[in-house]
Every structure is written in C-alpha cells, then in structure tokens.
C-alpha cells in the first residue's frame, strides 16, 4: 500500500496498465513530455517511449477520432481531454462513432477506448473549466460513464475501464485531485495523505464497473451522490445529525440499481445530489429510477440538490456549487415530511 493523491493513483493506474499490456497507448494535449496540466501522465513518456505516450494537436475531435481508429485497429487507447468543458467538438466521434461501432458493425469492429476528463468545479475555473457534462454521455447508448471519488477507486476503476471491451467516459472530479473536499471552501482540505481512501494498493487491481459503494450506512434517508458531492453529503449529514446512508454511485452507467433500491426500500427517503445543472441532469434519471422501482416504499417526495440551471459562474462559484448548507436544509425538510 502507498499513500497517494488521486492524481498519483491515476498516474499509477496508467503505469500498471502500460506495463501489463503494450496495446495501451496514452495521448492528449500536453500529456506527453510535460505529463498533463494536472500531471496525471507525468513520467509515462520517459518510461514507455514517445510512441506510447505522446502530445497531440489541440483538436478534441482529432484526439477522439484517432482513438477510435486505433481502437478499431486493436490498440487500447487511453486519451485525455484536458478539461471536460473541451469535449464538445468531439461529441460526434464519441456519440456516433465510438459508442456505435460494435453495434453497427455487429461486432466486426469494436472500440475499447477510455476518454478521461477532469470534471467539475470548485477551483475558480469559470465556465470553461468547471462543467459536469455526465448527462451528455449517460444519454448515449453504447457508452459507460464512470466518476471516482477517491484515489483507491480512481486506480481500480481506471484499470477496469482500460480493460473494458467498450468505450468508457472517465470523469475525474478535479476538486478531489489533491484531497477530499466537503464544500467548506473557507476551511483547509484534508490531504489524501491523511485519508484512509488515499491508501492505495500497489500493483494491479481493478474495481468492477457498475457497482456503487456505500460510504456511510444509515437508516433514515438515502443520499445518491458521486464525485465531489460524496464529501459534501458527508459534511451535511454530520452537521444534520441524520442517520443517512450515503451511496457513492462510482459508475453512472451501467447504474447499480440493486444497491440503490435496497437502500431506498430500507430508508424510505431519497436525496439526489449532483454538481451539474438540474434540468435534464443525471439526477432526473436517478429520481425516475427510484420512483419506478421504490414508489410504494417512499415516505417523502424524492428531493434533488444540484447546481443551478445557469452557466457555471466565476465569482459566484460558491453560490452555485451545492454545499453542505443546501444539503442540510433539504435533509431537514425531508425528515419533517
């Protein structure tokens, strides 16, 4: 075991995958010599050479299109989109190509491709370095969408994604890269070096896609969260003194409905929490799934706490970002109803 940040865990997953399988190639903007703007691929070019880890032109559609061609050839590309906010020019290559290749060719060609993207807000990145576009991807048949919340999961899920025979969107909450973040931006963060989930197994292991993790067991209310919001939920629950069960979804698609159902049927209450905008967000899907499968067990309406339906603002970031205060209010309201 080694105590790692999420960045180090992601880098380690690349290293392990590249060492195990020479079909794994890594590329993107600034990922080669420099090792990425967040340093997630640092040292890989020196270790594995320029043809397995390299810089690309600034063209997201080019990066993903090259990845689709390489995956069709038989390589396992792991590509980085520098910020999730930059992915839009590549949506055609992701939604109509990577996601559809196996289906439309009846398995003649497949696309084992991992597209990594630093995601989400909380670093004063303004609207083009803060977005949470997960719902764009969960809406596309043929993609899997993953968002880890800690170094242990980041490494295991990334290794599973690289080994997956289908394209995986791997969203990395950049606010968590250096330590868990509970939404109290005025307080210092706890570094991963001092957190149990920063204790990462050495060498190879993988964390199965499609399985949620229960971060806190409880009987009164179920909180469905992923990424940074897992820690916001923890902070709110601690303050609220409510016996909440916090589920870290980890994989949004395929969704671990079994774990969700079991929890909601036990607690009878469900709070859905995400950083992305509300309307048509992934929370809408979560509410529908819970309503369809747990309606007769519910004691209160399902509640959503999300980012507002505005572009991501710069100066007003902490008013936009769902913090423990909003979650706390929602929990109190739910428990009263």
């Amino acid at each position: 075991m080694t105590q790692m940040t999420m960045i180090e865990a992601i880098r380690d997953a690349h290293d392990v995958a590249m060492g195990r399988d020479e079909r794994v190639v890594v590329f993107g903007e600034d990922v080669g010599y420099f090792g990425g703007v967040f340093r997630c691929t640092a040292g890989l070019q020196t270790k594995y050479g320029k043809t397995r880890c390299f810089d690309t032109p600034i063209s997201e559609l080019g990066i993903v299109g090259a990845g689709v061609g390489m995956a069709a050839y038989g390589l396992h590309p792991v590509i980085e989109i520098q910020f999730a906010d930059y992915v839009y020019p590549a949506i055609d290559q992701i939604a109509s190509e990577a996601a559809r290749l196996r289906y439309r060719s009846a398995g003649d060609f497949t696309c084992p491709l991992v597209i990594r993207m630093p995601t989400g807000g909380g670093i004063f990145g303004g609207q083009t370095h803060s977005q949470s576009p997960e719902a764009f991807f969960t809406h596309v048949a043929g993609l899997k969408t993953v968002m880890p919340s800690n170094p242990q999961d980041a490494k295991g899920l990334l290794l599973a994604a690289i080994e997956d025979p289908d394209p995986v969107i791997f969203l990395e909450p950049k606010r968590l890269y250096n330590g868990p973040f509970d939404g109290h931006h005025e307080k210092p963060i706890v570094p991963w070096k001092k957190h149990e989930l920063g204790d990462v197994k050495d060498g190879y292991y993988s964390t199965e896609l499609g399985k949620a993790a229960i971060r806190r067991a409880g009987d009164d209310v179920t909180i469905l969260a992923y990424g940074t919001m897992v820690y916001v939920a923890e902070a709110a629950v601690e303050e609220a003194g409510v016996d909440a069960e916090i589920i870290d979804l980890r994989t949004l698609l395929p969704l671990d409905l079994d774990t969700i159902q079991e929890s909601v049927k036990k607690t009878g209450r469900c709070l859905v929490l995400h950083e992305a905008t509300k309307t048509s967000g992934f929370g809408a899907e979560l509410m529908s799934q819970v309503q369809e499968s747990c309606f007769y067990h519910l004691e209160a309406p399902i509640v959503r706490v999300t980012g507002w339906d505005t572009p991501y603002p710069h100066a007003q970031e902490w008013d936009y970002f769902p913090g423990p205060g909003r979650v706390l209010d929602a929990l109190h309201q739910m428990m009263e109803s």
Partner: peptide, 22 residues
Amino acid sequence: SISGNLGTQFMQAVGWAMASAI
C-alpha cells in the same frame, strides 16, 4: 464500418494508420 455521419472516418483512418505505425 460505414458511419453515415460524413467525414468522421477520415480522422479514424489516420488513427488506424498511426496504430499500425505504433
């Protein structure tokens, strides 16, 4: 596999060729 979305395959051809060279 033909896409039907125009142009996408042009970039993929380059990716496939890069993979062959890699």
